[in-house]
């Protein structure tokens, strides 16, 4: 297990931010930490890094206590904070080189993460001259130093325009592929998250409502996925698809179908559609509405 939370309580003065949070994040997974404002997402991530001391409970990161084995944990961890807390008075290069040095890395690595995050052109800019989008890239760049085994990203797409959002998410997905890291992303923007996560932790009012593989939760809450399938023969394709057990309904449009399928079977349907594309029955298809939003609503309201 990469991250284990065992009945973690965090009280800030009179605010109970976490009220007994328990979950596990498996190695190599891409986990969405989802919950409304004030649910405790940021607190959870800060506790994982060791920046916040839990009031009660046990936290293990790769088997280590973040407060007792500070170096052990921090050297395998990359953290993108929610608020851009970067010192405005230094240049991007200075900050990245200094942080690389803390990790015992040469300045070459500073250039490298800057390149990965698309920041190379701004290496000599003072940080307070960067736009929000570029601050977020700086956040990603510093989180990637030392190719961490575990990446914690607190709302990586907040405050970004739609194009930058797509780009940053694509970047995260690619990095995950390349590094094979365990990734935890906190967010409340669900549709875009669905493209990248395979596990979720649903948190609300300081409690974990549910957690596990996305598909398992999707099955448990009986949520569906909607596909848009472009086809030259809508009617005959609809007849074939409706025979599948997992398909809950098909709406026929002019030149395309809207297929409602059990979330769990969406992968299987994707395979079938892919085959049909070979035979010309299907021109193309894509997931139209995500099920993460529905899952989230159902889980949070059943809590």
């Amino acid at each position: 297990m990469s991250i284990v939370f065992d009945n973690v309580v965090k009280i800030y003065g009179s605010v109970e931010a976490l009220r007994g949070v328990s979950f596990r994040v498996g190695e190599g997974s891409m986990t969405g930490l989802l919950g409304p404002n004030g649910a405790g997402k940021t607190t959870t991530l800060k506790i994982t890094v060791g920046l916040v001391r839990p009031t009660r409970g046990r936290v293990l990161v790769a088997g280590m206590d973040p407060l007792l084995e500070e170096h052990g944990v921090k050297s395998i961890l990359g953290y993108l904070p929610e608020r851009p807390v970067y010192p405005g008075f230094v240049s991007v290069r200075t900050l990245l080189r200094y942080l690389a040095k803390l990790r015992g890395l040469s300045s070459r690595y500073a250039e490298r993460v800057a390149r990965l995050a698309g920041l190379s052109k701004y290496m000599d800019s003072k940080i307070n001259a960067l736009s929000r989008g570029y601050l977020q890239r700086l956040g990603l760049a510093q989180a990637l130093l030392g190719e961490p085994e575990i990446l914690l990203l607190d709302e990586p797409t907040a405050n970004l325009d739609p194009a930058a959002r797509v780009e940053i998410l694509g970047l995260i997905a690619r990095l995950k592929e390349d590094l094979g890291a365990t990734v935890v992303i906190s967010s409340h923007i669900l549709p875009e998250l669905q493209q990248v996560v395979d596990h979720v932790i649903l948190i609300s009012k300081g409690r974990v409502v549910d957690y596990g593989p996305l598909e398992e939760l999707a099955r448990r809450y009986g949520v569906t996925v909607v596909f848009r399938v472009d086809t030259p023969a809508p009617r005959s394709l609809a007849r074939r698809l409706i025979d599948l057990d997992s398909v809950k309904g098909v709406l026929i449009h002019d030149g395309w179908l809207e297929v409602h399928v059990e979330a769990l079977a969406s992968g299987e349907l994707g395979g079938i559609l892919e085959d049909l594309r070979g035979s010309g029955m299907v021109r193309g298809f894509k997931v139209k509405t995500g099920y993460l939003g529905e899952l989230y609503e159902k889980a949070i309201s059943s809590a």
């Binding site: 500070e70 921090k74 961890l77 904070p81 608020r83 807390v85 010192p87 803390l102």
Partner: peptide, 15 residues
Amino acid sequence: GQGYASLYLAHPLSR
């Protein structure tokens, strides 16, 4: 106060 410390301390720099 500004939170810079938390950035540095998220890297392998102990308190």
